[in-house]
Nucleic acid binder design. Structure first.
Lengths: 257, 257
DNA sequence: GAATTATAACATAAATTTTGTGATTTTGTG
DNA sequence: CACAAAATCACAAAATTTATGTTATAATTC
């Protein structure tokens, strides 16, 4: 077992149990404590966990769990399924907006196949990826970089979006309940709203687990979206609220690889 | 001599003579032909040269010579010297603008040390680097990505810059003659001018070899700059023109490592 | 089709990264 | 405050990765 596998595994343990003991994992992987110390140190530096005496924890509520580097590691198969379904709405030649989030960066990857295409985004991961792909016109929105979301936000971002126009915007959300989608961060909400305002079609791409939660700011009314893509059917109350409106719902199926 | 040095040297040879022979350079560096084959293969893949039977050429006029990946490899010691001198104008806490160009990205690297600092840039290399440095507030300008310059340009870029204000702008130029600096690309010129307009101090950072050349568009009058940093004294005519004006000239010295 | 050059595959060498050990310091606890 | 457990440090050893060379085979040029 190699270093990175071991570290990934440590994270998995941590996600399951919130805490691990150093002696424990050293024994489990058959390596010295020092090696585990180094693993934990590096992961801590990467912002994934917090070292405590005798082990490490992943404390919710702190920056850690909400950090993009952490979320990036989670449920990548669901993300891929969502991204592929979302991409089916796009034809070559279109102009698309993609917002922040690790789900969105997977979508960015997938969309790079649909060239020629114009991608407008504030998502740093997508910029980095799309840069190298010919046939993709990449338009960055600019703004102040946020390490927490790995994307750019602020007045500059919003102003840039207000001067642009896309065929379709893909919006993600960390929480939704009833007819509303939520987000905890004001700057992020504004950027997403600006994208929606600047696009013909609006598409919400959301993990089914996010339903039943709320957050400080209302991001949008679900009925504002032309399409909602999720990995499971929407909860009954939400489905009922949307019934009869113009919002289509699509369920992404995981393609078992 | 290490791999990268050897490759750098191959490029230098190529720049001087337009073509190299494989047997030649294998003998010169005292390595096997196979190694040189691999060097040339990789450099070709990087878009720097073109392999031909028995050697390689660098055909000007094609994308190669003007490509940023090519320029990136040139004269890195001069760039570092220029960057370090430029950085001496900056104090922690300042807001600086840095434009496109490989020289500028070196400057970005160096400035990341001066934290806390706010960096405003359209340079993709700097964004990628500064992102990971805490204590650096990174503000991207947005715009359409240009693979040729590895930076963002266009209306969005200019609009973003027009709403911002920095303490100092570092501008680079590929050509200067008499009292004027030049650039071949209109969009690039506009972004540089927008940066200058949005900054208190203006500083031109320019390799001495660039003097005596011109290009399609005038970028700026050298007298507009508060400081000009170069690696050798300015040519007499230019120096005379600037004499008595408010422009300071600084010569960067290479620190032999 | 002979000579030369290029590619591919594998072995070896060099460099880098990762790990373990033991000494030393820090931390928490009674 | 003293003790034990844990963490850190510094260095050596091991493992892995990367770079290079060698040889055999294929492709090109003339």
């Amino acid at each position: 077992m190699k270093r990175e596998e071991r570290r990934q595994e440590i994270i998995n343990l941590l996600v399951e149990s919130r805490a691990v003991e150093l002696d424990d994992i050293a024994a489990r992987f058959g390596v010295s404590k020092m090696t585990i110390h180094r693993d934990l140190d590096d992961l801590e530096r990467a912002g994934v966990l917090r070292k405590v005496r005798g082990g490490a924890t992943i404390d919710a509520g702190t920056q850690f769990e909400s950090d993009f580097r952490f979320r990036e590691l989670q449920e990548s198969d669901v993300k891929r399924a969502l991204a592929e379904t979302a991409a089916s709405l796009v034809e070559p030649g279109m102009t698309v907006m993609i917002n922040d989030g690790s789900m969105a960066s997977v979508l960015g990857d997938v969309l790079c196949e649909k060239k020629p295409i114009t991608i407008i985004t504030n998502n740093a991961a997508i910029m980095e990826r799309a840069r190298t792909v010919s046939g993709v016109t990449l338009m960055g929105t600019g703004g102040v970089y946020s390490a927490k979301f790995n994307a750019y936000f602020g007045i500059v971002t919003e102003a840039a979006l207000s001067r642009l126009r896309a065929d379709i915007a893909f919006i993600s959300a960390p929480a939704a309940s009833g007819r509303l989608a939520y987000h905890m961060d004001e700057a992020v909400v504004r950027s997403k709203q600006a994208m929606m305002a600047a696009s013909g079609q609006k598409c919400l791409v959301i993990n089914s687990r996010r339903f039943g939660h709320t957050a400080l700011h209302v991001l949008a009314d679900l009925a504002e979206f032309d399409t909602i893509i999720s990995d499971k059917p929407l909860p009954p109350d939400t489905a009922a609220e949307l019934d009869g409106g113009g919002t289509a719902v699509r369920i992404a199926k995981e393609t078992t690889t």
